[in-house]
């Protein structure tokens, strides 16, 4: 069993968990993920490793409550245990040998972007960061980002904080200002990553995206996570999760992720009702 050592709500629906998992902590690297199951009937969901403490034997994840499983998880308290927690999975992000990079994060994707950004910084690159949120209330990790990037642009959709508008606009400004990046690294909702890729394409800047298709085993056994990249089929859990954003078949990837939409909505309601009953 995998104990929740600390639980901190960064926002009401964005929660940081520090999980006791010494073997995962020992091997974890930026860009990798874990798969967890909350309880015995639980589904397997992938979550990026936000941070790790090899000495303490813990792994930190940041999870946004969006549906049944993340809802169930959000009801677990410090000291409770997760049924399963396996990893680290996927290939670590290649962060070495870069002089100047720009990391673009969207929403909870920023939680995923942070360790990658920090690693770029630790490897000696000059790091610019563009992070986007819906509004002021959901801005996370700003201080952490600021500490490791020389330029930080915070965007909100409604302009309630930082610059008003989309990350793609802020990114375009940086590119037009003459910044030459070895790489642009985007993590966030698929649609955001798609438009970041579209934005950078005319500039010819290599753009890496961290893909998040629906997964089960995470070991290359089921092929459920497959993507079409440059006309070839790739398994995101073993060949990725990082891919060349200019080569991903975005429309297909976005649609495949909505495969179980009806089931998910129904399951979420079911779980919410269950918790409501418990409270009564």
């Amino acid at each position: 069993m995998y104990r929740i050592v600390t639980k901190t709500a960064l926002k009401p629906t964005v929660i940081l968990y520090e999980i006791e998992a010494p073997m995962v902590a020992k091997k974890a690297q930026p860009g990798q993920f874990i798969i967890l199951r909350v309880d015995e009937n639980g589904e397997r969901i992938p979550i990026t490793i936000h941070d790790y403490d090899r000495e303490k034997g813990t792994v930190t994840i940041i999870v946004q409550t969006v549906g049944a499983t993340t809802e169930k998880l959000s009801h677990k308290q410090q000291g409770d245990c997760l049924h399963d927690f396996v990893g680290p999975l996927g290939k670590p992000t290649e962060t070495e040998g870069k002089k100047k990079v720009c990391v673009v994060g969207g929403g909870v994707g920023c939680a995923i972007a942070y360790p990658v950004l920090k690693k770029f910084h630790d490897c000696g690159a000059e790091v610019h960061a563009v992070v986007g949120f819906k509004n002021k209330d959901v801005v996370i990790l700003e201080d952490k980002f600021r500490a490791v990037s020389s330029v930080l642009k915070v965007c909100t959709d409604d302009g309630s904080y930082g610059q008003k508008g989309l990350v793609t606009e802020a990114l375009k400004e940086l590119l037009d200002a003459g910044n030459v990046y070895d790489e642009i690294f985007a993590i966030g909702p698929m649609v955001m990553m798609k438009f970041v890729s579209k934005t950078t394409e005319p500039y010819g800047v290599p753009t890496t995206v961290s893909m998040s298709p629906i997964m089960i085993d995470g070991t290359g056994m089921c092929g459920g996570c497959r993507l079409t990249v440059g006309g070839e089929t790739k398994f995101a859990c073993v060949d990725g999760p990082d891919f060349d954003g200019h080569k991903v078949d975005w429309d297909l990837a976005v649609k495949r992720n909505q495969m179980y939409h009806d089931f998910e909505v129904h399951k979420h309601e079911e779980v919410c009702n269950l918790f409501k009953k418990e409270v009564k």
């Binding site: 009937n41 639980g42 085993d217 092929g223 497959r226 297909l252």
Partner: peptide, 30 residues
Amino acid sequence: NLKGVYSANEFLTRINLMKAYKPDSDTPIM
């Protein structure tokens, strides 16, 4: 890679390992 194309491994894993055919399982199946 269209929606609705499974490998047998994925389909069977959802059903056998994850028990997707049971109402109390959180794992979806088409």
